[in-house]
């Protein structure tokens, strides 16, 4: 089987300081990869480099495009990369406000990606938006309400709906459950797990919450000071951590 995303030697420096160094891995279709590590370990830098938001200093991000097969997204032209960004890729921000248009109704938010790829039938767009609101458990009657009137958890679910409406194959998530209370987190995780399984999505999830990767991720990478210190199956890494830092990370989780 051909990997959906193949990352080779991604390096990003901020002057003398290392953002992330020499990160390589393959992601196969339908697989969920978790990236964990402490604050400042380079998780978000890596994610932004892969999603095309930051230009890396070295390395390749080869994506298996629908039309032309495997292609390096770092060297491809900007229009192509932005096209990927609104069709086959999705990016879920930690703060829903970064990923939503707060002045536009929920329906408009979900419909934006559809209109961006050329959908021009109001009834169809609205139908799909309503359908997606229901799939992320938002009352369809709120389709014309602005996200400012939504709770934090609803905003996050709306952001997910907005990203998944064009049927992407790869989702980048940056701390998708950060800033939500635990019961809302649990519902969101449940929803995400369902969507990932139903749609056969591949996903890369950056988080410092080990419970999130335990629930969602098939494989896990542990990062420290910009480098991957340990990688493997999620259960293997979490239950039998080998590297000193992974052991510290796992033992730091409070048991209630």
């Amino acid at each position: 089987m051909r990997p959906l995303l193949s990352v080779q030697g991604i390096t990003k420096r901020y002057g003398a300081h290392i953002g992330c160094a020499d990160v390589s891995f393959d992601l196969y279709p339908g697989e969920v990869m978790g990236i964990v590590g402490e604050s400042g370990s380079g998780k978000s830098t890596l994610l932004n480099c892969m999603a095309g938001h930051l230009p890396p200093d070295a390395g390749q991000v080869v994506f298996d495009t629908r039309a032309d097969g495997p292609k390096d997204t770092i060297t491809m032209s900007e229009p192509e990369r932005r096209m990927l960004g609104r069709t086959d890729w999705a990016f879920v921000h930690q703060h829903a406000r970064d990923g939503l248009r707060m002045g536009v109704s929920a329906g408009g938010n979900v419909g934006e990606r559809l209109m961006a790829v050329g959908e021009r039938h109001y009834g169809d767009i609205r139908g799909k938006a309503t359908d997606w609101l229901e799939r992320v458990e938002i009352d369809a009657a709120r389709v014309d309400d602005r996200p400012t009137t939504f709770s934090g958890g609803m905003q996050q679910r709306l952001q997910i709906a907005r990203n998944l409406v064009t049927g992407p194959r790869l989702v980048f998530m940056d701390e998708p459950t950060g800033g939500l209370d635990v019961s809302v987190q649990a519902r969101l995780l449940d929803l995400l797990r369902g969507l990932v399984r139903d749609m056969g999505l591949s996903a890369i999830i950056v988080t410092h919450d080990l419970a999130v990767v335990r629930l969602l991720a098939d494989r896990l990478m542990v990062m420290k000071s910009g480098r991957v210190v340990e990688a493997g199956l999620t259960d293997q890494v979490l239950d039998d951590p080998q590297h000193a830092y992974s052991q510290l990370l796992v033992s730091s989780v409070l048991q209630v």
Binding site: R101, V104, G107, G108, G111, E112, M115, A116, R120
Partner: peptide, 13 residues
């Protein structure tokens, strides 16, 4: 695409 979001908002409102 964004231009149509404005028109969409018009119709929905």
């Amino acid at each position: 695409g964004l231009m149509h979001v404005k028109l969409y908002e018009d119709i929905s409102r």
